[in-house]
């Protein structure tokens, strides 16, 4: 299934490296990525393919959020369907 990962927070060195290697270690494949820095604010949005079944994504999302805390960033991982539902008619 596909999930959207967003990473936001104060810009610093090595964010992309840390997040992408974390995702790789969890078997998530990054399919699309866009990233920008506005002033001191870092924002990255990725689409990733996650292998697994229902329930696995919730656990991985929690791990992502906890990993984010260790590098001082807000990380969210959400099933792509929530964005499809809310923004596509």
């Amino acid at each position: 299934m596909k999930a959207i990962v967003t990473v936001t927070g104060k810009d610093k060195q090595g964010i992309i490296a840390k997040v992408s290697s974390f995702l790789a270690s969890k078997g998530a494949n990054i399919e699309d990525i866009s990233q920008t820095v506005m002033g001191e604010y870092f924002a990255m949005i990725m689409m990733v393919e996650v292998v697994g079944s229902d329930g696995d994504l919730a656990a991985l999302a929690k791990e992502c959020s906890e990993m984010g805390k260790t590098i001082g960033m807000d990380i969210h991982m959400q099933h792509e369907d929530i964005f499809k539902a809310m923004h596509n008619v």
Partner: peptide, 12 residues
């Protein structure tokens, strides 16, 4: 699909 703005809007 959806734009970055839309993604951030949902999270907000």
């Amino acid at each position: 699909m959806f734009t970055n703005f839309e993604i951030l809007e949902t999270i907000n």
